[in-house]
Every structure is written in C-alpha cells, then in structure tokens.
Computed example of a mutant assay.
Amino acid sequence: MNKSTPAYITGIGIISAIGDNVAENCTALTEERAGIAPATYLQTIHPFPVGEIRYSNEELAKIAGVLPTFPRTALLSIIAAKEAFAPFIGKTEGLKAGVISANTVGGMDLSETMFESVAERKAMDKRKLWYHECGSITELTAYAIGLEDAWSTSISTACSSSANTIMLGAQLIEQGKLDIVIAGGADSLSKFTLNGFNSLMILDKELCRPFDENRQGLNLGEAAAYVVLMSERAVAQTGAAKRAILSGYANANDAHHQTASSPDGTGNQLAMAGALAQAGLQPGDIDYINLHGTGTANNDSSEGIAIEKVFEGYTIPEASSTKAYTGHTLGAAGSVEAVFSVLAIEKQVTWPHLRMQTPISSLNWQPSTQSVAKPIRNVLSNSFGFGGNCSALVISKA
C-alpha cells in the first residue's frame, strides 16, 4: 500500500434485518438483538428463518425516495448509500469520485416472478427484466446519490463481493486515480438464492449457530451497506472526520472447490496473512476479528483452523460472527461487517457472538460470547466466498 495516500473511511451507511440505519444497527448489536425470523415478504414454501428487512418494496421505495418499480436489491442499496454519502453532498466539486457496488442477486426478485409466464408461454411484463443484471443496481444507486456521471463498476465474487469493492476503492485512492469512492454492496432475498442454498443442504431450519460443535448451517439474510473512502485531499475539502482507515487488505484463492473452502483454510490463511502484511502489522496487533462465520460445517472449521495457523504463537483476540444477527447477506456481507468493524473501533467494544453452546472441539480457541470493552486499534474482517474467493480487510483507528 502507498502509505502517502491512504484511504480513510469517512462515512458509513447500512440497512439490515437489525436496523434501518447505522444507529439502529449499533443499538441492536449492543443489545444482542438478532433479526432472524420466518419470512414475511419473501414468498416461499420453505420454512427456513431468514434475516429479512421488514418492509415491502413499496415501503422501501418511499424510504429511498425512488420508484417502486426498482428491484428490492436496488432499493436497499440506495437507502444505505444515501446514508453514507449524505454528509458530503455538495462538497465534492472538483474531486474525482467513483461508485463501486457489489451484489449477487441483481434484480432477480422481480425477474424470477416471470418464470411461470415464460414456462406457460403467457404474456410477460418485460419491465421486470430491465434491472435483472447485477450492474444495473450500481447504476441505479449512483444515479440516486447524484453520481450518475462518476466512474463506476460492479463486483460479483459471491460472499466476498463487497469486501472486494472496498479493496478496489482503496487501491484507486492509493494510486491517485480517485479522491472519493462509495464502496459496498447489497443483496435482497430471493427464491433463487433460498432454493439454491437449500439444494446445497447448508441452511439451518433453526437460528444459525456459527462455530458451535452442533451447527447445522446458515440463515440467509438481506442487507445493504456502504463506506465512503477518501484521500487526504478529499478529507480536507469536505471537512470529513476520519472515522477509520483501511490499513490492509488481500484477496486469495486456493481453487479447492466450487462451494467449499479447503479443509485447512489455505485461501483464508493467505488472505488474512496478506492483509496483515500489507498493513505492516503482526497478528498480535489485531484487537478483534469479525469472522466470516456462516454456521456451516465446512466454513467454520476451515476458518477456525486458518486463524489458528495465522495467529500461531500469538493470543487469538476476541472474535465473533455478526451473521448470527443479520443472517448471511451474500454480496452485502463484507461491507455490512466492515461497517460493524468501524463501529467496534468507534465504540471501543467487541460484538458478542450469539447462540454458541458447545465450542468446536477440534479448535483450541472459541469466539467470545460476551461484549468486551477494550482499546480497539485494528479489526480483521473476513469474507470468504464460493469458488475460493477469500478476502480479508484490516480496518484501523485513524
């Protein structure tokens, strides 16, 4: 990383199953209040609990201030991006700005409703296909926050997607190509994703239990979260507060399997070690780990082993999976957990790990089930996706 042009985190925005904004999410984490329950708006025959945001598309459109014909992923994305960028509207003239957004669902919540019409050769409402592709979510979001003319791109690397948007945004700032980047992601629940994960047999019929010996799988969720990254120049012009700094990041791939991590978490190790090295930190400098922690047998075991290997010779700090609060939000997960990492630094607390009764017997450490008030300078945030796409961010006190 070019230390002379670091990427500062100056704004954050989020909507998830535990809150409509940053303040509500922070309160829910503090109160250990999860948002996982039976689905209300997702129409499905499967009784799996999900981290659903309790608004209809029409209600979300009113909150976002946009048309109700937008797909749900776009509505969530716009709400979170507006919250993150609102303090800087009108202050960025002359700055090179960009929008990098991630998702895996795109406009599928609308387009999948056309399946029966297609199968039965009935008339179709083609407007529901307008925003099907992932890139359309980025375009709608950029337009809604007034950056339709800014450079933008989309990333879809499964569950590491939005962590990779933050990584790319930081690189562009460090290289002097952009001064300000709104980076993050969104995903809504859809039949396709719920059915797909069900076919993999990795959904828990009860509330998920990450890192528990008797874990049965994950709970899907929906969310959107964004961070505003700025160069020193942009900070000076906008008068922004430096809430945190992205001090290190890395992406790695062990190419082990389409959907499973390697048993010893090789890709996970490479990502964590690479992020630490780029930040110029030792494992002992990490004060809190926001785990990927999905609740599946494979993920938790491989991530746990990888952490043991990366932190060998060091005391493993407090660690927790906040997916037990929000559900696994897929393309939004990395940015959701980046926001939670910034909040941990600002509040100087670790977030407690929920619902763990029996720690994994094969590991020599376990997540912290209690919130711990302590000096937090550096947070390691893990995001590991299908296809072995593993990313880790080090978010530090500015």
Rank of each mutant, 00 (worst) to 15 (best):
A7D: 05
T10Q: 14
G11E: 09
S16L: 08
C26W: 13
T27N: 13
A37K: 14
Y41M: 06
T44E: 06
Y55P: 09
E59H: 14
T69Q: 12
P71G: 04
T73F: 08
A74Q: 04
I78A: 10
A81W: 02
K82N: 06
E83H: 04
F88T: 04
T92I: 15
L95D: 05
L95P: 04
G98Y: 08
G98N: 12
A102L: 05
G106W: 07
G107V: 10
M108K: 02
D109M: 10
L110W: 15
E112H: 05
E116D: 14
A119C: 13
R121G: 14
K126L: 15
H132M: 15
E133D: 10
A142E: 05
E148F: 07
E148C: 06
W151K: 11
T153W: 08
T157C: 00
C159N: 01
L168I: 08
K177N: 10
I180H: 13
F192E: 10
F197E: 00
N198I: 05
M201R: 14
L203K: 01
D204Q: 11
R209K: 15
P210I: 06
R215K: 13
N219C: 03
A223R: 03
V227E: 03
M230C: 12
E232R: 14
T238I: 14
G248I: 04
N253K: 00
N253F: 01
H257M: 04
T259Y: 08
A260Q: 06
D264S: 11
M272I: 00
A275T: 03
H292W: 01
G295W: 01
D300Q: 07
E303N: 11
G313W: 06
P317L: 01
P317N: 04
A333L: 02
E337L: 01
S341T: 10
E346C: 06
E346S: 05
T350V: 11
I360G: 00
S362D: 08
S362I: 08
S362A: 09
N364L: 02
Q366C: 08
T369G: 11
K374F: 09
N378V: 04
S381L: 01
N382D: 03
G388C: 04
I395D: 03
